[in-house]
Write a protein that binds this DNA or RNA. Sequence first.
RNA 1: GGCCCGUUCGUCUAUCGGUUAGGACACCAGGUUUUCAACCUGGGAAGAGGGGUUCAACUCCCCUACGGGCUGCCA
Length: 450
Amino acid sequence: MAIRSNPMSRPTVTRFAPSPTGYIHVGNLRTALMNYLIARKSGGQFILRLDDTDQERSKQEYADGIMEDLAWLGLHWDRVEKQSLRMDRYREAADQLRAAGRFYECFETPVELDLKRKKQLNMGKPPVYDRTSLRLTEAERAAMRAEGRAGYWRFQLDQNRIEWPDGVLGPISIDAASVSDPVLIRADGQILYTFASSVDDIDMGVSFIVRGSDHVTNTATQIQIMQAMGGTPPNFAHHSLLTGPHGEELSKRLGVLALRDLRARGVEPMALLSLMARLGSSKPVELASSMEELIEGFDVESFGAAPTKFNDEDLFPLTRAHVQSLPLATVADRIAALGVPADQAELFWKVAKANITVLADLEGWWTLFRDGATPLVDAEDVDFVAQALTLLPPKPWTHDTWGQWTETVKQATGRKGKGLFRPLRRALTGLDAGPEMADVMPLLQVLPKV
RNA sequence: GGCCCGUUCGUCUAUCGGUUAGGACACCAGGUUUUCAACCUGGGAAGAGGGGUUCAACUCCCCUACGGGCUGCCA
């Protein structure tokens, strides 16, 4: 099995298959983005598949939320599939596996299975299902059913080594004997993920699956399921899982790492995409200017297998860089909404963009210009600042006002350089660092409240 | 307990037996800007530990430690 991920090969069909049981977070996003980029790079298809076989936990609200988040990021799918609409197909596939003798009915209750596992562990044995039910005779099965026991169905694994060339992990080989025969249909009839996913990937022509390394063992069993159905397993790549900045489990922080929360914090899509498309790979993380650039520069095989530390703080330098690159037209509405006069919008954007991280920071700058700053004046500068303000010419202030004024103040006080500029900057803006003062002057609507 | 994967500067990583162990981000220091930011230049900074194999090991093998994942009638 060769990896068909390069642009010279045939179009690749990928899929992102979230369960609508929650919103997308950075971990999911990595999976979604990789699949998206691979499909686009090969001129193939990107399928959004809602794995909603769990009727209890799946909610439309989450399905909508997932689509909203993907759309926000510009990860457009070519088609949507819902597993809940394909139940007939799964039953059909189940019949096929039964006919092929790869499916067997089991009758242990969850409690019994749990007990069995504990026993095995106590005896130092791996907790692998012992296939007791496989050895049941037809009469015994009938007796179980007569007892009122509801059967559930397992897939009988071929107990040889399952191998595949993983796009990230390299050659993988797992002994099927070390894995329990997977349960594919529950006693209540619910089709389980492992099965539905295998059927779909074959039916939908998925040719490359990228997902988290938490699925490695699933892949082994799903390869056999797909083969048992007469399908050809796709290529696989299992990316490492994200951890927190200190290597701790990310799940503890997922509360603040949902896409919608990051959006609320002002993170820009391109910043998020740029980080996720490169973090953990050997390629440098750099702000991309377009999706095309991300597609062009993407390579799954450049990702390492080691767990990847993710720090959400890293999103903000990228967001700042992206925001600063935006043309006025893109933010004009937002600026107008703040109440910035149209004739000052251009200058305001020029001044503000170099001094913000997220667009929401714009408001603070306009408030400062409109209402005046709370000045910062050191004790030894009080007289100096007071004197300087008396020398400030009356409005209107222009770009040249700053130069003329500071020159006048310099003449009058003898101060120069840092000693001259810093106190005035602090008095007028209340800040140590900030925009070019010559540009600030025309924007200042009032003097500071000295 | 079993299975799979991993461990190189603070972070993401390059190196596919011979390198002054390279880059990116971050950091620090100079320079430049009459102020801030930006920018330019420079700098500090790494092979988990122990055994092998070899003329030579970050690289190959084994062991240990540590990290992650799986081991569900979840996905």
